[in-house]
Nucleic acid binder design. Sequence first.
DNA 1: CTGAAAGCGCTTACAG
DNA 2: CTGAAAGCGCTTACAG
Lengths: 303, 303
Amino acid sequence: MRVRVLAAVQDLGYRPNAIARSLRKTGTKTIGLVVSDLMNPFFAELARSVEDAARKLDLNVIVGNADEDPGQQDRYIQILLERQVDGLLVVPTEETSTLLHEAAQRDAPIILVDRPARDVNAPVVRADGDQAIADLMTHLKSLGHERIGMIAGPELAGTGRQRLTAARESAARVGLDLPTECIVRGTFRVESGEAAMAHLLDLPAPPQVVFAANGQMGQGAIMEARRRRVSWPEPVGLCVFDDLPWFELLEPGITAISQPVAEIGELAVEMLLRRLAGDEVGDQYRPCRLHIRASCGEELNGR
Amino acid sequence: MRVRVLAAVQDLGYRPNAIARSLRKTGTKTIGLVVSDLMNPFFAELARSVEDAARKLDLNVIVGNADEDPGQQDRYIQILLERQVDGLLVVPTEETSTLLHEAAQRDAPIILVDRPARDVNAPVVRADGDQAIADLMTHLKSLGHERIGMIAGPELAGTGRQRLTAARESAARVGLDLPTECIVRGTFRVESGEAAMAHLLDLPAPPQVVFAANGQMGQGAIMEARRRRVSWPEPVGLCVFDDLPWFELLEPGITAISQPVAEIGELAVEMLLRRLAGDEVGDQYRPCRLHIRASCGEELNGR
DNA sequence: CTGAAAGCGCTTACAG
DNA sequence: CTGAAAGCGCTTACAG
């Protein structure tokens, strides 16, 4: 009998309806991941490490792409919540999202990834770039630079503010000038890096080195420099927060700060699981690393 | 009364349970997208264009990442089917997947993206690189090259075979030598490009130009060349099927073929919708474009 | 150990 | 037009 039933299952191609199942059962064995921009390799890699970690724990993950748009982000959170995900991993696009705030309060356990979000009652897991940025400033100073510029992130993004603050403080500490007119805000997207670089190069007194606050904007800065046939480290040095795989392939290679992406993704899943189990979990930070190459005048040093 | 109910909805933060709804209703307003490798910018962009197109049609999309692993791919197809997606967009990792075959037959409408899959009864939408590859071979010939090598894709992937066939045929047509010992198979991932490039460079008689069958393997080839301090176009030229945003930033810039990714994503959604409506849809191909830069000896021409 | 019933949270068709 | 009932496909607690 049992055999005949199984044969029929095979024969008819019966597939259990997971939707009906999760209506009756408590959990869905599914978590949601809302990233701010899938075209950014950082988040593509994050998505991958989250998926890998989740798979090992027999959890499914649904990925949503907010495209740095808070409206899109809220839309995805809404959809995922309606689909009864057990928990949510979100890279918040901006600090203020009423939905995120609400959701964190009652719907589902949430872990914030990469960026903090004020007023949202959820633990954060992110890279801590402060030390690496301080290392970078010390490095630039030791190369003999005096005046630098920055392509900063959006004011409302936690990461953006944090990297700017760290750069300002450590620049001041080592005696490097980071004047207000040399700080231009971007949106974390490639195009804004191009525009910002154009602005900096057009300044009456351009900075000696430009520091881009994320990889996408760094790419934009590089593209704008090439377009103008402006090279580095002369007349302008370049360094980037985020290390793209091709930075070392350029000539000269780009000095950059890398984040422990894979580790952050794994940690995020782990933290979410602990919250699902009812534990309280605190914020987690992981250090970044400075990769010194040749885009800031390293080889010209001491000439 | 109505007002009071709505107030309570607001107050309690009521959110309709989409799972319960879709149990009763016919559709889920959700489609699945299974890509073969999210770390490949081609598929990241594909995912984005699919999401954009779906959003406009009020469809949700769940993204799954197979990581070029047929097991993973089947697992995702299974999950998505169990979750009652209305239809599936899949970039098949290999030609033979019983699940894909079965699913196409009875479960849900499927559209194959980027790669054909033999024995699967589903329409394909993909770029047609044949003309662009022919253009490339003509170009290489006109540059005076005689003997080229290729980093091909996996034998089982439709795209891999197709690009190799196109290269072989058009090379023969223009009188370019593409000997068997200069064809090495990769897996479409970066590491396999490195290994393949190493193999080709170590040949007693290395090819004058290497053609990589996708962007990831092209990246690997470039990395291996840099590691060995081997430059291009001398001693070896380089060209790639897929155009990564930073190919033009290298010095010399990489000659490459670009695919109309965004258009393919939009078309895929559109085709799936038509299948959902019960229409028959045929295969769709869109042409690629050759971008001539300087990695194959363009500037040395005629010296 | 086996089998029938109740219920998850919705929508829809039907009766009042 | 309003309100109660049936049913989507499962799982689980309960009766036989």
